[in-house]
Simulated assay, not measured.
Amino acid sequence: MKQNTAIIMISIISVCMMIVAEQLLGFSYLSKTILKIGLFLGIPLVIIRFVWGENILHVLNLKNTQVSQLKTGILLGFLSALTIIGAYLMLQSVIDPSAIINDLKTRLDITFQTYILVALYIAFGNSLLEEFYFRGFIFFKISQNGNKTFAYIYSALLFSLYHLAIFAVWFDVSLLLLALVGLFSIGLIFNYLNTKSGNFLNSWIVHIMADIAIVSIGFYWFLHS
């Protein structure tokens, strides 16, 4: 129970700090990334290893993972990428790409020249940070401490609210609510998917392929902006 309380307090503070850096302080993407690595990776690793005295690989169940365990993640990854592209094609009439590109350029200081590097980081590095944090650290640790239902809801809700704050200025209210429901549902699905393998690798694969679809759309917008 003490571990769960610590995880909840740490995760709320960390996510709030990221939101403040994102929306209020106007951190550059590089500064925000450094902060995120410290909050989402550095602090949890220190707590797991040196405060709780636990083996990190054992906690995350990353030993002896078989390729066969990842087939579901690969399949769902392809399906998620196709779904994102299909949803964009259906909703592109109500999305304003120029507003999104302008926000990336002005608030995050991302240019067309740096976008490819940022896109690669988002797809592979950022997705790893988020899956380690929301699934490996939050979901699995709270579940291991005996509160699986709460772990499902809390990690998925925090995951959705964190992302909603990132693109709060991109869409109108109806699309934001749709995104909130979608992200919360994705969080629940990721949690369920990972319970089958006991680690976060399957959801990481899905996350990678979904992000590849998203940054590909962004690249298209940059080309036509």
Rank of each mutant, 00 (worst) to 15 (best):
L25E: 08
G26T: 02
F27W: 10
F27D: 01
F27M: 10
Y29H: 15
Y29L: 13
Y29V: 15
L30Q: 15
L30C: 10
L30M: 12
S31T: 07
K32N: 10
T33F: 07
T33C: 03
I34H: 09
K36V: 09
K36C: 07
I37G: 05
G38Y: 07
L39I: 08
F40K: 04
F40T: 02
F40D: 03
F40C: 09
L41R: 12
L41M: 15
G42H: 00
L45S: 07
V46S: 02
R49D: 05
V51G: 11
V51K: 04
W52G: 05
E54C: 02
N55V: 01
L57C: 02
L57R: 04
H58S: 14
V59W: 00
V59I: 00
T65M: 07
Q69L: 01
Q69D: 12
K71N: 09
K71G: 12
I74A: 14
L75R: 11
L75C: 08
F78A: 05
F78M: 02
L79G: 12
A81R: 00
L82I: 13
L82Y: 05
L82S: 04
T83I: 14
T83W: 15
I84H: 03
G86C: 05
A87P: 06
Y88P: 06
L89Q: 09
M90I: 14
L91N: 11
Q92K: 15
V94N: 13
D96S: 08
D96Q: 12
I101F: 13
